[in-house]
Design a protein around this nucleic acid. Structure first.
Length: 589
RNA sequence: GCCGACGUAGCUCAGUUGGCAGAGCAGCCGCCUCGUAAGUGGCAGGUCGCGAGUUCGAAUCUCGCCGUCGGCUCCA
């Protein structure tokens, strides 16, 4: 997301949106005298502007603001750049009572710097590098979208300002297209499809952020999990099962309680015994305990402990979002214990596995974020040398795979840097799916050791990795990626058998039985409905194949196959069963 | 948690200025036996999210909770 530190850009769309933000601010100041304006950058698809308003406003106030903006646009007010010495700029914004602009000037401008301001006619003046369109008449198509609160400088300890989001386009047609695309994206929304396809449900009686996986959704998940575990075992991972709770002390020792107790479930305290148990927010401490069940030799390393582990995090209510952000989730987790020499190779192996999972599942639009520390010292533990060794291993592994990445300063885990696989949902919001993290700190905290060749004790390094991420978030992604039309191997129902009339039910049952023998998930639609209705319903459920049978098929031992794209073929039942089974076995997309 | 919006039948939504709660789809019971996206008739279904308050009277107004959505913050 764009910030005030954002480099100015002369890209035309960027300029247009930035200029529209100025017009928005001008309109708001006209309608709400006494408004202080903070920052108003262009962003992907639009712009926003943050205000401190003299009185609270609601969404019904947006319409009048749009009208005022249209008025300003009709006046064709020129955008004029005025350069001022810093002292004079400070004087100007002081007179205007624009304290946020003063704060920016004082924090970011050097004493001798010439300050750029932009005037919109005589209505509005902003601290701004520009560039801008020539005059407000160059703005042809915009719309205010919504209202939101946003903390000044993105810090929740600061005052919350009122943010107005808008969108702007060169032409009316492009604006309409954008709005149309938004509506289309909403149809792919996993929350909507989750309900329509009966994949999962939320019920306030279980509590916020606690999904119920319905039979169809649980089927997709089971297929993914079976395959994941199988692949990992194949690659030398050792799958374990560890409990969802542990003594609170375990998380105190790991440092998690200290840092994250606000978003951990409250400890369960038992009066009689004095025991204090805690729902686990992640799996690493348990896997460390697995490591410590034996004295480990260098010959055991790398030791890859894996589990699809349930994690419990009490996310703030406003942070919950469908399946993307829940309070209970299952992570495709593993912790690799290795020597420093093995580190880069293990990172590389983890990346390759995550890439492979992504490819087979169809997570095909992602990029790598190398998440590193920033200079907020208190957030990170461990020494400089370890952090740079960790970062070198991560960057080295990416380089060895010829992958480019973007840096994410301040996005590291508290114990070390990581590579995050970043994806976008249907509404273009960014999420982390897979992750590979290097950790020198937990081995230290838990005093992990292995016996080296020379008989001495050494400290292993840990790689934390979620190759497919959390089942919930992955599912949300896949639902949106496929708009609910899963590849056949994942589809909850793979074939619906549809008899043309009740007279064909016995043969339809035979067809279903034959398909089931090949472990194909098949439904026989024996409802009292017409064939057309049954086709319509199978289509709505996005079932990959319909096997439609009547007299002709019964006589020939065939099925009439209609796929969900609408293509039709007639083929022997045996051929159909085999080709679907093959498609499933190959996990074809 | 904070800002804004929202919560009416299983789902999607109507419900005038406060005056007897509606439709379509889904469900159930019939009839129809049909060749590639909705055959047809009937029946049933609602503490209007929950709890207070205002009022002769509240789905509608006020307040507090719960939940959902969009942002902000957070994301081990």
């Amino acid at each position: 997301m764009a910030e005030y530190a954002e480099e100015p850009s002369s890209e035309p769309l960027y300029v247009l949106r930035h200029s529209t933000a100025h017009v928005l601010a001008a309109a708001v100041c006209q309608l709400h005298p006494g408004t202080k304006y903070a920052i108003g950058p262009p962003i992907e698809n639009g712009f926003y502007y943050d205000f401190e308003l003299p009185e609270p406003i609601g969404e019904s106030d947006l319409r009048p603001i749009e009208k005022k903006m249209a008025e300003i646009i009709r006046k064709r007010l020129p955008f004029v750049q005025v350069k001022l010495p810093r002292a004079q700029a400070i004087e100007l914004f002081k007179e205007l009572g624009q304290t946020y602009k003063l704060e920016i000037l004082e924090a970011e401008a050097k004493d001798d710097e010439v300050i750029s301001t932009y005037q919109t006619g005589d209505l509005f003046v902003d601290l701004c590098r520009g560039p801008h369109v020539r005059d407000s008449g160059d703005i042809h198509a915009f719309k205010l979208m919504r209202l939101a609160g946003a903390y000044w400088r993105g810090d929740e300890h600061n005052k919350m300002l009122t943010r107005i989001y808008g969108t702007a386009w060169p032409t009316r047609e492009e604006l309409d297209q954008y709005l149309h695309d938004l509506a289309e994206a909403e149809k792919r929304d996993h929350k909507r499809l989750g309900r329509e396809l009966k994949l999962f449900a939320f019920d306030e009686r279980t509590g916020a952020g606690l999904p119920l996986w319905l039979p169809a959704g649980a089927t997709v998940r089971r297929e993914i999990e079976r395959w994941i575990v199988d692949e990992e075992v194949q690659r030398g991972y050792q799958h374990v099962r560890t409990p969802d709770v542990a003594r609170l002390d375990l998380y105190k020792k790991s440092g998690h309680w200290d840092r994250y107790h606000d978003s951990m479930y409250p400890p369960m305290r038992f009066e009689e015994s004095g025991e204090v148990l805690e729902l686990r927010p992640m799996n690493c401490p348990h896997h460390i305990l697995v490591y410590q069940t034996e004295l480990r030799s260098y010959r055991d390393l790398p030791l890859r402990i894996a589990e699809i582990g349930n994690n419990w995090r009490f996310e703030k209510s406003g942070e919950l979002s469908g399946m993307n952000r829940v309070r209970a989730f299952a992570l495709n987790d593993a912790h690799i214990f290795c020597t420093p020499e093995q580190l880069e190779q293990e990172v590389r192996g983890s990346l390759e596995l995550a890439m492979y999972f992504s490819e087979v599942l169809g997570v095909d639009e992602y990029w790598y974020r190398l998440s590193v520390r920033d200079d907020t010292k208190a957030k990170w533990i461990g020494g400089e040398a370890e952090w740079s060794a960790a970062q070198a291993a991560l960057a080295g592994a990416l380089a060895s795979l010829d992958q480019v990445y973007r840096l994410g300063p301040g996005e590291a885990a508290f114990y070390g840097p990581k590579i995050d696989f970043q994806v976008r949902d249907a509404m273009h919001r960014e999420f982390t799916n897979s992750t590979v993290q290097v950790d020198f700190q937990l081995p230290e905290l838990f005093d992990l050791e292995y016996v080296a060749e020379d008989g001495g004790r050494r400290r292993p390094v840990m790689v934390h990795r979620g190759a497919a991420g959390a089942m919930e978030r992955l599912f949300a992604y896949l639902i949106e990626r496929y708009a609910g039309a899963f590849p056949t191997w994942l589809a909850p129902t793979q074939v619906v058998v549809i008899p043309i009339t009740d007279a064909h039910l016995p043969f339809a049952a035979e067809v279903a039985a034959r398909l089931k023998r090949s472990r194909i998930r098949v439904d026989l639609d024996d409802s009292q409905e017409r064939m057309n209705k049954k086709i319509r319903e199978a289509q709505a459920r996005k079932v990959p194949y319909m096997a439609i049978v009547g007299d002709r098929e019964r006589e020939a031992g065939e099925v009439s196959v209609r796929d969900r794209a609408g293509a039709q073929t007639a083929e022997p039942l045996e051929d159909f069963a085999q080709r679907v089974a093959l498609e499933i076995a190959e996990r074809r997309r």
